[in-house]
Design a protein around this nucleic acid. Structure first.
Length: 190
DNA sequence: TGAAAGATTCGCT
DNA sequence: GCGAATCTTTCAG
């Protein structure tokens, strides 16, 4: 497999990789610029409390999609990692739109390119990803898939994770330095 | 059966 | 920059 199974290694490797989603109307794709890792045993990980109906996707084989609803309004897209039966994954937080930016804008209702997929909920909405994509294999080359970086990515930075109330200080957030598409500046929370 | 918390976003001040 | 919206899942009694 071109992507590692170790959670944090995967989170880093995904920076610069390309997320592609083909739906009935066309292709949307984007270059991943921000991720967060949720390793096994992490108190902030959904799987930490044990396997439930909701987080079962995290226990799937590496490379499977785990989609969950947050705050009742939005979806977040994750990639399962480690091994089947282990609850861990990587959250995709932001991408730089490549193809289909106009379709993202239509779905999101915004015109500014850097606002199309900056943030987990926005990313899922822009790509048209929802619970229907639960358990999809990113490595199988299907409608929803991950592709290797098309161009060398810039320097990668790390920081504490965003939006968490526990373990937020762990440096398990990865992002491309200097990219205007990361959600880091301007919307950090304590 | 009831109550609280959560990996967020949008809108108004 | 700060506070509200919104609903599913999970924990407690």
């Amino acid at each position: 497999m071109i992507f590692p199974t170790d959670t944090l290694a995967l989170a880093r490797a995904l920076i610069g990789a390309v997320l592609v989603h083909e739906d009935g109307a066309g292709v949307v794709s984007g270059r991943i610029v921000e991720t967060e890792g949720y390793p096994p045993g992490d108190p902030a990980c959904h799987a930490y409390i044990g396997r439930t109906a909701r987080n079962a996707g995290l226990f799937a084989a590496p490379g499977r999609a785990y989609v969950y609803r947050i705050y009742g309004r939005y979806h977040c897209l994750n990639v399962a990692s480690e091994a089947e039966g282990v609850g861990a994954g990587v959250l995709l937080r932001a991408v730089e739109p490549l193809e289909g930016a106009d379709r993202m804008a239509a779905r999101r209702g915004v015109a500014r390119r850097h606002d199309l997929a900056r943030g987990p909920g926005r990313l899922a909405q822009a790509f048209g990803v929802g619970l229907a994509q639960q358990g999809v294999d990113f490595y199988a080359g299907g409608a929803l898939r991950l592709e290797p970086p098309r161009s060398p990515c810039g320097p990668i930075g790390t920081s504490g994770r965003i939006g968490l109330t526990r373990e937020a200080d762990k440096p398990w957030r990865f992002y491309e330095r200097g990219s205007p598409f990361v959600s880091g500046s301007g919307r950090m929370r304590a």
